[in-house]
Design a protein around this nucleic acid. Structure first.
Lengths: 222, 222
DNA sequence: GGATTAATTTGCGATATGGTACAAAAATCG
DNA sequence: CGATTTTTGTACCATATCGCAAATTAATCC
């Protein structure tokens, strides 16, 4: 009994730092992984086609726990979308930040995008921003605002990238970074859509390659 | 009583030619307009979020009539999508066929697309091919096949258009019609998505303008 | 007019759905 | 241990949903 207050720091518990001891009955789920499962489902099926029972089964949480942890279905959808955005941003931010030639940067961005869009055990799931734009965004102002933000964020990142390339002389003086950025975003959107129609990866990579060729200046013979 | 078999060809009935006399109780709806109403709803709300009651109310047909005329909800969705494709094709086929400069052709195609995507009493409804790709296409092979066909049809039309332009010398010898076509389709897809997020028309027109500039060769000073 | 045909109308039924109330369970605190 | 706190599990409710069966209405055919 000298010190049994803490069982020997058992390994399989996450043991949050900073959150020393939770008071009541411990959770049987980890909120982060549960949210990830919910996101998976929403990405595949959309909001309306995904029932609370589906979500309950996928997360392993029963409905009251779901409700307690994330709020109602709409709130869960919104949190899932925010999570998606964080994940997507995390997978690209380094590529946008690092120093590298324009063409290489674009290639790596699109490779990252394709990895996101083509992942999924039961088939490719596309881009959640596009899925949401095509469904809930028309009718729900709050969700629409988030989608707009997502679209704008990508535009901005691409614009930045073309602006820098132009300054470094990788683009002709007449090039319009903003216009190129929107073409680059458009290419992201088209592969997001096509991936959901199960267009094979090779073909999507071909589209990306063609788009990059045009954007970095098809005139420039390699 | 000399000839009362036909009431004097009353004007307000469509009076199909070739279909001389229908046998039983006359329909109170016109299948074409009913299908149009169903399409409107599906475009706005998607498949799962649209109930048979919604469709019944919008078409003025009650559920059994709907069922009798179009089959179940999924069949109605499929017929709605086919109708959408016919409408969209009709609004563009002339522009693709007529003889005109490349830039003008692109401008007119995108103007037609924007008209389709921004129409709708309760807000813009976007492109039904994109909406369907983002929802039902992943899970339903038959619907997916139609979506693929819709995507390919547009690609092909654009490719044709760039190929002809190249032959006429409107594009540099190194231009790749297929790659340009996919960029042109990508631009269609991006404005379809953005329109559903209520990006204002002016901004969409700006995107189109920038894309056209790049595609017809930004190098070519006007 | 009576039979036939085809559409409409009403209403049902089985199930699914989103959300919640309430008691039991599992931890900490004193 | 007993009180407290937090989560879980079961059950439930009101409503929505899809699809259909049965009866009704309105037209044509003979």
């Amino acid at each position: 009994m000298v010190q049994k207050s803490k069982p020997p720091a058992a390994a399989n518990e996450p043991e949050r730092r900073g959150e020393p001891k939770r008071r009541g009955r411990p959770r049987t789920y980890e909120p982060d992984v549960a949210l990830g499962k919910a996101l998976d489902l929403f990405r595949r099926q959309g909001f309306a086609a995904t029932s609370l029972d589906d979500l309950s089964e996928a997360t392993g949480m029963n409905r009251p726990s779901l409700y307690g942890a994330f709020g109602d279905k709409r709130e869960l959808y919104i949190k899932s979308y925010q999570r998606y955005r964080e994940d997507a941003r995390a997978s690209m931010v380094e590529i946008f930040r690092e120093e590298m030639p324009l063409r290489q940067r674009l290639e790596r961005i699109y490779a990252a995008a394709l990895n996101i869009y083509l992942s999924g055990e039961t088939g490719p799931r596309g881009c959640f921003t596009v899925v949401t734009a095509a469904s809930e965004a028309v009718g729900d102002p709050e969700i629409r605002a988030m989608v707009l933000e997502g679209l704008a964020e990508l535009d901005k990142a691409f614009a930045n990238c073309f602006r820098r390339a132009k300054e470094k002389g990788e683009l002709p003086a007449g090039a319009d970074p903003a216009a190129l950025a929107q073409l680059a975003s458009a290419t992201v959107h088209t592969i997001a859509i096509r991936s959901r129609a199960r267009v094979p990866r090779k073909e999507l990579e071909g589209i990306v390659k063609g788009a990059i060729d045009v954007m970095v200046g098809a005139g420039t013979r390699s």
